[in-house]
Amino acid sequence: MKFGIVILPGSNCDHDAWHVAKNVVSAEAELLWHKETDLKGADCVIIPGGFAYGDYLRAGALAKFAPIMEPIRRHAANGGLVFGICNGFQVLTEVGLLPGALMRNEHLRFLSRDVFLRTEETDTPFTSELQRGQILRVPIAHGEGNYYADDATLDELERNRQVIFRYCDGEGRMTSEANPNGSARNIAGICNASRNVLGMMPHPERCSEELLGNADGLGIFKSIVASLARV
């Protein structure tokens, strides 16, 4: 299986994701320049964190016009895996591959620290190796991570079990204190209705090795590899 990691102008977590894919889960991995018009055979496309196009206008807003977005749309429509992390999640909502929007953090500050996440659903290719309710400690680093969608959309996400990660405390309780940025219903990550596109604000690629003091993010990458091996 092969990961394709997109480099948009202003991406800055591309090599972290590439490193985990290539050297930690030992998959094939290729960086994909934003001007590319094909995905070089990637089975899972990662849109990494950063500040694509300087976050001008809105985070992720200008990325939807990058040439590589067209093959990514097609890949997603054909059931291929697309994984947006942080800025990548913002891009996926702007592109329309995921519902809702990511707004300024409630307290207006850029947040860079670890948070706890509760794994809500494991029947996705991104979480199949995790346990339902499993608590992960994963870093966040964003100024616009406040997930918003109208109530009807939120209800639909819940009904279809598309909320994959929620902010929680160390014991898995979904409290407002554990919600770092004001996200609706403590949402940290969602998937699309067909479960092949995932977006999340926290950074699992920054915590996938014991050497870095935390490997809680590794399960997500292992899930992707295992899911694609089953295909």
Binding site: L57, R58, A61, E94, P99, G100, M103, Y148
Partner: peptide, 8 residues
Amino acid sequence: RLLANTVV
């Protein structure tokens, strides 16, 4: 298409 995100 660009200037506004009509979700919000």
